[in-house]
Write a protein that binds this DNA or RNA. Sequence first.
DNA 1: TATGAATGAGTCTTCATTCAT
DNA 2: GATGAATGAAGACTCATTCAT
Lengths: 215, 215, 215, 215
Amino acid sequence: MEKRAVKTKIKNEKLIDRRRKQIIDGAIKVFTAKGFHKATVREIAKEAGLTMGSLYNYIATKEDIIHIVYDYITRVLREEMKKAIAGIKDPEKRLQAALHQNLKAVYQNQEIIMFMYRESASLDKESLYTVLARETEYIELFEGLLRERFKGQRVNEERLRLAADLLPYIPVIMTSRRWSLKRRFESMDNVMKGILDFVLQGIEFIPEKSNTQEK
Amino acid sequence: MEKRAVKTKIKNEKLIDRRRKQIIDGAIKVFTAKGFHKATVREIAKEAGLTMGSLYNYIATKEDIIHIVYDYITRVLREEMKKAIAGIKDPEKRLQAALHQNLKAVYQNQEIIMFMYRESASLDKESLYTVLARETEYIELFEGLLRERFKGQRVNEERLRLAADLLPYIPVIMTSRRWSLKRRFESMDNVMKGILDFVLQGIEFIPEKSNTQEK
Amino acid sequence: MEKRAVKTKIKNEKLIDRRRKQIIDGAIKVFTAKGFHKATVREIAKEAGLTMGSLYNYIATKEDIIHIVYDYITRVLREEMKKAIAGIKDPEKRLQAALHQNLKAVYQNQEIIMFMYRESASLDKESLYTVLARETEYIELFEGLLRERFKGQRVNEERLRLAADLLPYIPVIMTSRRWSLKRRFESMDNVMKGILDFVLQGIEFIPEKSNTQEK
Amino acid sequence: MEKRAVKTKIKNEKLIDRRRKQIIDGAIKVFTAKGFHKATVREIAKEAGLTMGSLYNYIATKEDIIHIVYDYITRVLREEMKKAIAGIKDPEKRLQAALHQNLKAVYQNQEIIMFMYRESASLDKESLYTVLARETEYIELFEGLLRERFKGQRVNEERLRLAADLLPYIPVIMTSRRWSLKRRFESMDNVMKGILDFVLQGIEFIPEKSNTQEK
DNA sequence: TATGAATGAGTCTTCATTCAT
DNA sequence: GATGAATGAAGACTCATTCAT
């Protein structure tokens, strides 16, 4: 919860926001290309359109940069998700919209999301804490959506929760397998549709079967 | 295809094998704890019970070490998978055995597997090529198992292939969500059983539905 | 001799004086706490209640700050000394008053005086010259006091001068040994009295002994 | 007491000793010329006849260098003092020998001793602790010598201890006033003799005067 | 073959000083 | 006169790799 503060030597808030955006953009470019460790602060500064010294007026350590990036991306993803399901009432459609938004977000931000998975080990404890909290929030959103979706049916509670944990991450697999998938599918849209279908089929293991057995 | 050769200054093959095993064990220890970049060659040498100079008689660069580790792990996983499904004839049981073996392998080697996912970017091109080839082989194994499982039914070819791509990776999610899952489930065995059920339910989207709709 | 001038961009003399006092106060705070090199101009500015830019309207370099501080402290010490012996006629009492004032000044300004001893190497040549000149003046004051004190007796000239050189500095030892002394003495006042006695005894080596031996 | 250990990456003890001596010599040269903060590690390495990297095989931080230097000098001074008074039985001669050795040591190591006084603030806590302990030991040596010297007489205990604290430091004043003293004295030997006389006169304040008053 | 000391290029970080507003 | 953001040169420290013994 405790939002890890990045110390800055600058007072002008507007300027901080502007520079921070530059830093985020530059950092994403360099980080996705080379990863956190191989990226040099110099390169990030350059890509951000700042000098070394200037960059360090807005951060204290290299770790701050990765923190800022994580903070930004997770916030954006969360906001887009909120927008995507806003106003949808039907539980089934609501879940589908969320799954679709998740797929889309993962697909459109492949590189940065892969980067985030890879480099979470490079986060300091506090940052990791913040990120994990946001992840949990995300999972809980899906848990809620699933619960509404199966409202009225008897559900296996453990399975519902497991599904909530799995759902948001399955699209990430698409990212690491994209080269293979691209060759086999007509379009990435089809891949996404396929994943959606797979997932929707999968969650059917949640309701307790009354007298008929699955399998 | 060309298996990236690690150049060594040593002739005695037996010695090479022994030393390489030492290197692998030491490297896994250090790599899983700190990641590739933060691990120093010095530390790996020490953990391997070798001196700096001696280690460099068996490798040429730090990258060689990660290559050797990847090579070793992927080979071991493949062999264990082969053993796990050997002799099973019934296609359904064969698929389940493979899924179960995959879950078990991921669970038992969590740290090293997480490391492999994270650090694949640290592999040089040739190594990456080798690893990807082995991954493809793994996927194709699952593709074959699925094909046998649905033999006789009309299958949606694209979906079958997609499922083959997804199945081996879904257990990895368990690894990154283990802290959350541990709290919610009685035991990790239950988690694994849950994932298996989810997956088995999911692949039911593969057969083309003739006239009846699911839901 | 040439009093090293600190260049300023400001015309208003009254303002210069006010700002300079702020700078001195801020600098002493920071310098005594961290020494010259570890003190940053930023920090001094802040402690002085000025902005970076404003501070640099009154100094040209960081060295200027230390110069201003030295100049201020030595001037204050000199003035207090003058006041302390003003009006005292009896040579013996006059010397004692000076020694006492010196002890008191050293004790009350321990930190800044220690700082001045430590960091004299950080002064630029001109500043050092000024400081040394003022020190010489101080020494000569003691030389004069001693000469009056022993007026009428045959004195060993070299010893008299040596004593003049030693006397003002002996109290400084108290400063570097204060932790030890505190433990052993009832009060710092007693320490000071002890030092005074020691010194008064010591200077008895100045008069040439005619035929009688001491001890 | 706890002797602060300087971590080294080197195993060969003889080599460590040799290199450490090089480092000490190089560091003293650079430190005395520029002080701790203005001295660069690169320069010290060069003066020590080592490369940057090599130097850092024998130390972990720049602070280690100053620690090593302090450790070395204080040890040498202590050993020379021991030698200087070894075998002397007569308490008065013993004290004089100690005072003389102290004067000589301070004079011959002026620069490094001035450096040590100035830069003790640059020592980390542990090092400072070690140094202070050694200083205390030195003081206690003088306390012992004084006690023997006045054996049989009724002494003012506080004064004796104060004298022990002052004696070893008075010669240091000579160092900071050497330019002035040089001009006034025939030779530095004379200065030293003068200081000795002053001190010997001064300590006569230690014995309690029975019925005769001093002064 | 084994050893481990030496090397130096490369990195993060700091901070005195400047200057446009 | 005041402000504070920008600058970049400089410094401490790391570590993969080499090589003489």
